[in-house]
Design a protein around this nucleic acid. Structure first.
Lengths: 192, 192
DNA sequence: GTTGAAACGGAGGTATACCTCCGCTACAGT
DNA sequence: ACTGTAGCGGAGGTATACCTCCGTTTCAAC
């Protein structure tokens, strides 16, 4: 067995059933849930999700016994993709590598706000997600700090909250979102 | 009739019924709704709100025919209080007056996130709230800009989004919230 | 104090979501 | 090809929320 780059990836892989039809349904459910949560928030109807996925409601419950389990799987999947995006960025300039990853993070936050909100509070998977996220993005930030590009009196957790908060908000257009995010990042860089 | 300081205050006053028992119930409903929305989000049960207020469900519907109407009234009430807080702040230093008001704004946002979210989209009252908010806080910001305390390449709308986004997020503790908000405000002040 | 009107409460009809149960289907190992 | 089993769908019971209707209560003007 190969070493997993992030604690979350093994968990994500273990969830997916092996039989062909079951795996297909599992994927369809995850995709449908992602869409439904983005559209209707955390209270999206589970029956609607099953309908979107083209499977029976029982199939949803077999794969995800609780609403929370479904949340966790959707969230873990997203985080895993995000972690993998961080690999390879370390070849770039410290500050540019960091903002590039934060940009990806922002894109993920803006649509997934509902899921994150519902996961407020702790769980094993959520904890693994946090760790993976910090393992992926933390080094990028600390490298920027060492290079003198980012201020020293804050940590990576502060940065994620900052970006998460801003990107979870609805803006009039993408230009405003980028402008506001830029202002905040000027604050991160302010001690230059 | 005296001139109303902000467009929202007349609307707020007009909503409240005049008969004693009706006014009492109206106030109780608003308070209960504020609490319920903060606790359960935009999907809080209307019957639960009526129960908290100690009134029948019919009384709720008589005062607020739709869920949206209830949202609007709660929101308008909050905004009105916030606007009144801005009056008198202009005697202070430009930057300090601005951050002082933003602090009040942040305190309001952090608990009322659900209401604001549900009001995304336009309505007459929401529009009046926006205008009042801008009329109350905008001058504080522009004064800070003229004094060279705030950067010129942004507007008051950008600032509100910035603060609203950050404060709507859950932080581990108040210290982190203040630290992150401070970083963001450093960005606002960066062009000094 | 009388009285008319405004306001009240909560029962109950309707809709919708949750979740379980069970007879049927399709996969995969031999 | 056969066959055991893992997986499937959706009907239907249960719970909950929405909202209306109407007999009763409370206010306030006179």
């Amino acid at each position: 067995m190969t070493a997993q780059p992030f604690p979350i990836s093994a968990i994500v892989a273990a969830q997916r059933p092996s039989r062909k039809d079951a795996a297909r349904n599992y994927d369809a459910l995850l995709a449908a849930a992602r869409e439904a949560f983005a559209e209707h928030g955390a209270e999206a109807s589970l029956e609607d999700i099953a309908r979107r996925a083209g499977v029976g409601i029982a199939t949803l419950y077999r794969n995800f016994p609780t609403r929370r389990a479904l949340f966790e799987s959707v969230y873990a999947d997203e985080v895993n993709a995000l972690c993998e995006a961080a690999v390879g960025l370390s070849a770039r300039e410290p500050w540019e590598a960091l903002t590039s990853w934060l940009d990806r993070f922002a894109g993920y936050m803006v649509t997934k706000r509902a899921v994150r909100e519902a996961l407020e509070g702790d769980s094993e998977i959520f904890q693994a997600c946090r760790e993976s996220m910090y393992a992926a993005g933390g080094p990028l930030f600390e490298r920027a700090q060492r290079a003198g590009a980012a201020r020293a009196d804050m940590d990576f957790g502060d940065l994620l909250r900052l970006v998460a908060g801003i990107t979870a908000t609805a803006f009039t257009d993408d230009a405003q979102r980028d402008r506001v995010l830029g202002i905040a990042l000027d604050g991160v860089r302010a001690a230059r």
